[in-house]
Design a protein around this nucleic acid. Structure first.
Lengths: 229, 229
DNA sequence: GGGCAATGTTACACCTTCACGACAATCATA
DNA sequence: TATGATTGTCGTGAAGGTGTAACATTGCCC
């Protein structure tokens, strides 16, 4: 099960360890580093779902890390929560200017940080927050890996499940085959474009229930989308 | 039910007594002391489930107590809520850096402290020590380390027991093999992923009772989950 | 309707994942 | 120390999932 990936950039070992523990306890997949340059490398290696970034860190400064993350296309969209020391208002202003989504001033309660992270997750990708998604008459429970339609349990293979989940996270949106390959199979997968068609077909068959319509729309020469039926 | 154990470290006798009363009233098992060194001894004697720690106490200072608790392996994981005087922001910074989980500034309402303690308890121990858990027809008594199904006592090995308990604390939830290793074997255990399969099989066999269905669901390429059958 | 490109469908060989049995090492206990 | 229970690892085979090509069908533009 793909847990939400967090990148924690904090150079106080005690705080870093505490937060890492708390977040892992909540089911997040956490990577931590104290160094700005290493943070950029980690973010490039495996794009996280959210970044928690301390402003005062060794190596490249927080503000610079933030700027570079925003410049790189693969990480430009990743939400950033920054941690600023005390009431340094200048930092906050520059931080938000640079592209941070939210900030917390030290000292903060870990509980509050957890809450904000959860809020961001719900906003960005509901499934990552463990919430069941509903599109039309189809319901997907990411925690239990279960899908049902009209209260009838569906049986999906792993790829079919991932594909359906990907669609349900952005209902109505059209995805090209390349976008689907990136999102479902992972960036850098070396797979024939047409293979997507086959999995679409398999998914369609798997979510077929007596008396329902096919929720997957083919958009000719563009890709596929899922509609609320 | 064997109550959750609280350690209260507070040197204002009036406040200490008030809190002790309130918490005992809520069913907690409270130990109180006004002295930092004694707190460390008490914590070592019997590891509490949560520590409420005033920052300004006699003997060893709050910050030092916190640090030592975190250093000792047996108490490193115990959540700490610290009580600080309103004005002293530096303390809060150092406190959270040192490893406290949460803080409350004096004066605070006892009701709010109770709420936070309850929240921490729910997070740390979903099946609070003593509460027998029931999932479907399986009943687990954590005090007596006993498990039965349809009133028939089951015989489990230690690992099978921990694994079952882990599942029963979050019924329906799918866990990856890595999550199971972390949760059941402990973080940093150096064990083959596939070993989990074997223990799943042993657990399945151990909880097999004539005329019942297997409550453990295999989720291909994701992990395992336990269902209420 | 003809021609063309895009998509639907099927079949199949290949690969991954999991259940199961066996076994040696370790631990607990008498 | 001896005995039995427990534990971690490996190999094997079966079940199921995956990617690809080949062929059928559909939609579109003229």
């Amino acid at each position: 099960m793909p847990a939400a990936k967090l990148l924690l950039v904090e150079d106080d070992p005690a705080l870093s360890e505490l937060l890492e523990f708390r977040f892992e306890n909540e089911g997040y997949d956490v990577r931590a580093t104290a160094d700005g340059d290493e943070a950029l490398i980690l973010a490039a290696e495996e794009v996280p779902d959210l970044i928690i970034l301390d402003w005062m860190i060794e190596g490249t400064s927080g503000i610079e890390v933030c700027r570079r993350l925003r410049r790189d296309k693969t990480t430009a969209h990743v939400p950033i929560i920054m941690l600023t020391a005390r009431e340094n208002e200048d930092d906050r202003i520059r931080g938000l200017d640079t592209g941070a989504d939210d900030y917390m001033t030290k000292p903060f309660s870990p509980r509050e940080l957890l809450a904000r992270v959860a809020a961001v997750m719900r906003r960005i990708r509901p499934a990552l927050a463990g919430e069941t998604i509903e599109v039309g008459d189809i319901r997907l429970d990411p925690v239990g890996h279960k899908v049902d339609r009209r209260n009838k349990a569906l049986q999906l293979g792993p790829t079919e499940y991932r594909l359906l989940k990907f669609f349900m996270e952005s209902p109505g949106r059209v995805f090209s085959r390349n976008q689907l390959l990136d999102g479902v199979w992972g960036t850098g997968s070396d797979i024939e474009l047409r293979t997507v068609d086959v999995h679409i077909r398999r998914l369609r068959k798997a979510i077929e229930v007596e008396g329902t319509k096919d929720p997957i729309r083919t958009v000719r020469s563009a890709g596929y989308a899922m509609e609320a039926v």
